[in-house]
Write a protein that binds this DNA or RNA. Structure first.
Lengths: 232, 232
DNA sequence: ACTCTTTCAATTTTCGAAAATATATATATC
DNA sequence: GATATATATATTTTCGAAAATTGAAAGAGT
């Protein structure tokens, strides 16, 4: 008689606002990607339970998932640590990501439908809103930019038919994201250029010009990473 | 039915006997790869705790790791299931694996040292011991063959300098392994041929002939998978 | 006969306490 | 003083009970 039917507990869906209502895994990954916990940092349960207000078991489940995603390392008996970063690793990740993203983009261009196109336009618009902001404000909302930038690239290849191609690409993209944050402080003059690049990539993709889109995205990624490598 | 659950059993240290003392994650993955649990099977905690004699939390940790490895799916609130299989997926996995394995092999051939060579010879010998067995006995020891076959391929690329190349390759190899079991029943006449193939690949690798080794391994993998696809 | 609600059983998910382990500190021995 | 041994502290790891969720069966109303 106490069971009031109809009221669902406030278990925010994955589409919830990113500020507070996310699940532990996402929040944890986000904090690592955002360098809230810097590389090599030990992740102690005592601290984390307080920070995220969840039990040890739940935490451990999330952590061990992040291990297989490559964000966290686990030394038996010594606990979890944030995975280290290095210029060499960034170079390798970039290489793999370019290779995968180009193939995924080709695949998507072949298979994409109207919804796919419409979504690309939509998320690109959201991205451009932030990118055209004055430098200072853009920096304060950097994590928001990262999210929209991720959404944009994901939208481009969303129609990719290969499940595993998409999956492998996403693993590499997440890794790159982390380096994006580690090297957050970037020179000012390039924001506008990047904005143009995204527009050009979108145009070529919607025009179904796989060769051009492929070429553009390769340059886009490799330029971005090259700059990051220098900052490392 | 002899294990009294109430008292805390003296948990074997990790240095305990390796025959049965493997960790849960490995045993679980092995049982899935070996099709002990067939695709789409629901994995209920009640059953698994009895089978592996571990707590729910430990189980959940292992399961969620297998999710990110692609062997298990998790539907929120409905629990864990063994990931489904399909001919399309096998085709795609094969494609990616060939691409990655070829690159990893080239990398290893460039960087491999004496220890690397010696290890290849050793594991190849162990593999050939099983492959030259009469058909019947070879089948009864199939899971052993799978293990040694995995060791052989891993030894070939062990000297690969790219951490992520090795990692991505291994993810795809594990997936292929599962299909190897699903399509276990194979035609008889080909065991000998495969034996030769492995020897040729080893020879080309030790001769540091990257082009030849690359060509051979591509044919080796694609032939094997093609056969498996037909049986699916 | 049909639909909507209620109740009950099965299962997942979460949590914190307790065991196992590693790290640091103190005490003894040569 | 240096090394080894013992004690204390901190942290990880494991476990099963309790809470939350789902799915199916029973009941009520039309």
């Amino acid at each position: 008689m106490k069971k009031t039917a109809g009221t669902r507990s406030p278990k925010q869906a994955k589409t919830g606002d990113p500020s507070s209502g996310q699940d532990v895994l996402s929040r944890l990954r986000n904090d690592i990607v955002s360098s809230v916990f810097e590389p090599e940092t030990r992740l102690k349960f005592a601290d984390l339970t307080k920070r995220y207000d969840v039990g040890i078991g739940t935490l451990r489940e999330g952590l061990s998932q992040l291990v297989s995603e490559g964000f966290v390392t686990l030394e038996a008996g010594k606990g979890f640590k944030v995975a280290p970063v290095s210029a060499e690793e960034l170079i390798e990740i970039t290489e793999h990501f370019i290779s995968l993203e180009k193939r995924a983009l080709r695949d998507a261009i072949e298979n994409g439908d109207d919804d796919w196109e419409a979504n690309i336009v939509a998320v690109h618009h959201r991205l451009s809103l932030i990118e055209s902001l004055p430098w200072e404000e853009r920096m304060t909302r950097h994590s928001e930019w990262v999210q929209r930038h991720r959404d944009f690239h994901e939208a481009l290849v969303a129609a990719c038919s290969g499940r595993w191609l998409f999956r492998l690409r996403s693993i590499m993209f997440d890794q790159l994201d982390r380096y994006r944050f580690v090297t957050k402080r970037a020179p000012e003059g390039l924001g506008g250029r990047k904005f143009e690049e995204h527009s050009e990539i979108m145009a070529a993709t919607l025009a179904r010009d796989a060769d051009l889109a492929s070429k553009l995205i390769e340059k886009h990624i490799s330029d971005t990473s090259e700059r990051a490598i220098r900052l490392l």
